[in-house]
């Protein structure tokens, strides 16, 4: 039996956190949540996850800052990271990739697409 995929979601919006929690747990994922980049880093310092899903616009430390920080440490070089973005433009995707994201999820997302994206990058 596989251990459930453990996901950390990082979003400052309580409703978005609730939506992510609902969609991901419905697909059998194990979900942890943080409210911004700083909290995510603090949590990741003592915990392991299979995947990080992060929003971009957040107070204290935004999504790009978080990815940069994670990619800078050997522990997280190969960590799959998905970015939540409201824009589906190529330019936005390129920016997310350049920042070190593994992939992206365009908001508003449906639970199926979210789960597909998660499975596509989780190893």
């Amino acid at each position: 039996m596989h251990k459930a995929t453990r996901i950390l979601t990082v979003d400052d919006s309580p409703s978005m956190r609730a939506l992510l929690m609902q969609a991901l747990t419905a697909h059998g994922f194990d979900v942890e949540q943080a409210e911004d980049g700083v909290e995510a880093l603090e949590w990741l310092a003592t915990n392991e996850v299979d995947l990080v899903i992060t929003d971009i616009n957040m107070p204290r430390m935004d999504g790009f800052g978080l990815i940069e920080n994670l990619r800078g440490s050997a522990r997280h070089t190969d960590r799959p990271i998905l970015v939540l973005t409201t824009e589906s433009s190529d330019e936005k995707k390129k920016r997310a990739r350049d920042a070190g994201a593994t992939g992206w999820i365009v908001k508003p997302f449906d639970a199926e697409k979210l789960a597909t994206a998660v499975r596509r990058v989780t190893h």
Binding site: S13, M16, D55, M58, T86, K107
Partner: peptide
């Protein structure tokens, strides 16, 4: 930035809830 984030966050939810 704070103003931007506030409006952005409403937009995100508005999309999610249709």
């Amino acid at each position: 930035n704070a103003i931007f984030r506030a409006v952005h966050s409403i937009k995100g939810g508005a999309g999610a809830f249709g």
